[in-house]
Design a protein around this nucleic acid. Structure first.
Lengths: 341, 341
DNA sequence: TCATTTCTTCAAAGCGCTTTGGTATCGGCG
DNA sequence: CGCCGATACCAAAGCGCTTTGAAGAAATGA
């Protein structure tokens, strides 16, 4: 069933049918209704390839996910995608996922632009001085960054959370409880959010004349195993920290397991604050009673909003929406307590 | 830069250029080389919409993810997608993700077929007598099911693991250790794998004249919180089980937390076996020393293989590849031990 | 009443690619 | 020498949609 078939069946021209379906004003209201009814009854759906070719718009948003050989797929990504995806469908957009080795990432963006396979992209895992930003600007491809790069000389759209402030706050909370030796189990060092979180921790400590120790600063992919391993090692060391801050609830879960393994108690023998992305499948206890003291911001909501921003920017390139920086909540759980003596 | 531009620049017809690029035989080898070089240098990439329209093939695989209001996105999905995505790119396919409310799922498949937006789909979360199978067959849309439905009267392509056998084996392992009261923390009851796993547990128990208790059989979305909650309740009850089987490592982690919370020890006070999908961000300890005794099968590899099967089926509908059933590994960790007294 | 505007509709020209159905050239063969 | 089958290329016709430009019909105003 093509437009032409439908038009013939209705005794109308393809032009009129097309315009009726796309809500152009120059069609008689009655005709429009007749066309729409017939289309529905005949199960007519426009061919997407033809539409793309004719309009030049793909009605598709691209997400590029870098997965190197043994690298894990970012577990928070699923949740972000869920949020973004929820907004695409009602807006008439599709989402394509490209999973590629890191070495090919830039090439993928170029090819997306050249073949016009997407109308815009969302950038994940923003990095310091992210080279993707310049590339996309050069390619004239609309994009929104989840997170902020450190670039200041260039203007781009982003949605981020106030990482520095949140981790400064968390650190102050620990300092208030008397902790001095605080470890940070951060994400990969070159990611923007990791840089900012570390800066927040250091800022808070500096304000109290507490010297952060390099040996307590860790960076890695935020898995459960990482939290377990590092925390186990720390607890076994002669000069163990009294508090730990983790960048993800999975890492926190690993840390908690290490604490339990040694017969210790979280919140008494070791205090822990984590950032919580509000993962559906790994909740931080219940809303009434959080397990971990945490900075909290829903990554799923971030996905929703980022997608909306991008669609707005595509539809109206001259007046893009403003970038946003969200302030995470701070919730007190059972994982923090006064520093031991 | 269009095909026509490139052709003009080379002094050739669009026909010849198209054929040269697509490796048709009726082009002089030298001409082909010249065309390919010129295309690369000019950065020519075919417009995807035009290609779709002309060939009728979308070079795209669809994945539909159902996300209802408060439903979580399946955490294993990310890993499966990663595997599938890795095989799409080299094969020249793209992947589109549709995230939709459950009520719209069938409609999405219909519309995909009508608008020819994808060449095939992969079915997630196979259910008993899955109605999607009949629909896709009716729509004449190639598909592969991850998991098996219980349909026997119809033939379709699937990749599954031997759930029944794996859980039968796990249960036997516990029975051998002297456990009699065994709880099952399963996935949602209407999912095929959950049905099969439960059947495996019941089969093993029946073979030893142990009566499974309905009150120890649980079904829910496989989150950490679910594992924690159910295990806490069980441990607090007067007639607690001595062993627990969980369908996911996240649920197992929750169960482990519940055990630790009560000051008990896993493998001594409570035995636990879990299924492990080999999540990158939540490994089951290390390969040398698994934390949980587990049935194990990589869901990422499943994604890879499922995608390959689908592409093969699309390219050659008359001789589709065979369906596959993989046998999970069984690994012994530190979470199982002899039943108390 | 006729000129002018507004309302509807349509024919036809693309969008950028693939594919069908040629034609010209050339060597080989009887 | 003429015929045939390869070989290498091309013109043109789509694929199914949108959009431009035009044109009747109806309504309005002078």
């Amino acid at each position: 069933m093509t437009l032409k078939d439908l038009a013939r069946q209705l005794g109308l021209s393809p032009t009129t049918v097309s315009r009726a379906l796309n809500d152009y004003p120059e069609v008689n209201a009655e005709t429009r209704a007749r066309v729409k009814t017939a289309a529905r009854e005949a199960g007519y759906v426009p061919n997407i390839g033809a539409q793309r070719l004719a309009t030049g718009r793909a009605k598709t948003i691209g997400h590029v996910v870098v997965v190197d050989d043994h690298q894990i797929i970012n577990p928070f990504f699923a949740e972000f995608i869920a949020g973004a995806g929820e907004t695409y469908a009602p807006a008439g957009y599709e989402m394509t996922l490209s999973i590629v080795p890191g070495a090919q990432e830039m090439e993928v963006y170029r090819s997306m632009a050249a073949r016009r396979s997407v109308d815009g992209v969302i950038l994940h895992n923003s990095r310091a001085n992210d080279p993707r930003i310049a590339l996309l600007q050069e390619l004239n491809m609309p994009f929104v960054v989840h997170g902020r790069s450190e670039l200041t000389d260039t203007d781009y759209l982003y949605l981020d959370i106030a990482n520095t402030r949140a981790f400064e706050h968390a650190t102050n909370h620990l300092l208030d409880l008397g902790h001095k030796r605080i470890a940070l189990l951060n994400g990969l060092a070159d990611l923007s959010f990791a840089k900012r979180r570390r800066a927040g921790v250091e800022k808070a400590m500096a304000a109290r004349q507490v010297k952060p120790e390099e040996s307590l600063m860790f960076s890695a992919e935020m898995s459960e195993g990482y939290g377990y391993q590092v925390t186990s090692d720390l607890l076994a060391s002669s000069n163990a920290p009294t508090a730990v801050i983790t960048s993800s609830i999975l890492t926190a879960a690993g840390a908690a397991r290490a604490v339990a393994d040694r017969g210790l108690t979280l919140g008494r023998d070791l205090s822990l604050i984590t950032h919580d992305d509000v993962l559906g499948y790994f909740p931080n206890g219940t809303p009434q009673s959080p397990v971990f003291t945490a900075t909290r911001s829903s990554i799923r909501e971030a996905g929703k909003c980022t997608a909306q921003m991008l669609i707005a920017a595509i539809n109206d390139p001259d007046t893009p929406p403003p970038s946003e920086v969200w302030t995470p909540d701070f919730v007190i759980g059972r994982s923090t307590g006064a520093a031991p003596f």
